[in-house]
């Protein structure tokens, strides 16, 4: 149980921080596709008997590079969709070969946050620190390419390179967290808290901090309720994310409504 709390906390911090940029850049589809597609890699790794994290890593990085490469030649959302379904199709193939597949699918997709072994904590923490460091390095170009890609290009910042770098950060985050919390939880944690924070604060620094705090609150609450009710933790995370964003939108709309007529 202690392991679960530590793992969930680490995941929430990463997801909250990465999620801010996902929402800022409108990259929700890629943030969904990379961890989700990586699940195919885990299935392949299980099949050939290596550590699923290795398979996740290979597919996540491959997916990030593939989306970047295909997106250069065609529409970005089409590229993301096709890269995702190809990885998932491979996952379906690998799963059909393995013997005890159904349970494995379920835990990879929806996570097993209530059963984290101690020896997985250290790699999670390591990858998490790498993620945050990469975000800190890319911080300013990420912001600039988000609002004015042409200006960035004119100042020597390759928007494509920054985009690929960002997708690799998402891949890193996916690799460390998916085996613990599952695809679903990771994605919901990246979108819900960050979107809520974005509509409540004005400065980027506050938004990142609030996003991390909200992600922590969401995860802690979800783990606790899941522990009590014995229902899947992903259900609570997904619902809490949508509910908190809905509340924030209603709150800002009411506040705006009160000031507007004056």
């Amino acid at each position: 149980m202690v392991n679960t709390w530590i793992a969930a906390t680490l995941v929430a911090v990463i997801a909250g921080a990465v999620g801010f940029f996902v929402v800022l850049r409108g990259a929700a589809f890629a943030a969904h596709a990379i961890p989700h597609g990586a699940f195919g890699g885990a299935a392949g790794a299980v099949l050939i008997g290596v550590n699923p994290i290795a398979g996740l890593g290979v597919f996540a990085v491959g997916g990030a590079l593939g989306i970047g490469w295909l997106g250069r030649r065609g529409r970005h959302d089409v590229a993301t969709a096709l890269a995702l379904v190809l990885m998932l199709g491979l996952g379906a193939l690998f799963l059909s070969f393995s013997v005890e597949y159904a349970a494995a699918v379920y835990s990879l997709l929806f996570g097993e946050v209530l059963g984290v072994p101690s020896d997985e904590l250290l790699p999670i923490a390591g990858l998490g620190i790498a993620c945050i460091a990469a975000l800190a390095v890319l911080y300013r170009p990420l912001m600039l390419t988000s609002i004015a890609p042409e200006v960035a290009e004119a100042r020597g910042v390759g928007a494509q390179r920054i985009e690929t770098g960002f997708l690799l950060v998402v891949a890193l985050a996916a690799t460390m967290t998916v085996p613990v919390v599952g695809v679903l939880l990771m994605f919901s944690l990246m979108i819900g808290p960050a979107a809520t924070a974005g509509s409540l604060t004005r400065s980027p620094r506050n938004a990142i901090a609030l996003s991390v705090l909200l992600a922590l609150a969401t995860v802690w609450l979800a783990v606790a309720v899941s522990y009590l009710t014995n229902l899947p933790v992903g259900f609570f995370v997904g619902t809490l994310g949508a509910v908190s964003y809905g509340c924030a939108r209603i709150w800002t709309a009411r506040r705006r409504g009160r000031t507007a007529p004056a």
């Binding site: 300013r140 170009p141 609002i147 100042r155 604060t201 400065s203 938004a207």
Partner: peptide, 20 residues
């Protein structure tokens, strides 16, 4: 988007540099 006017101006100063 959580960006103030001053954040956009600050990005003009050093938005192309790496790091915080």
């Amino acid at each position: 988007m959580p960006l103030r006017a001053r954040d956009v101006v600050a990005l003009g100063l050093d938005g192309h540099r790496l790091g915080v």
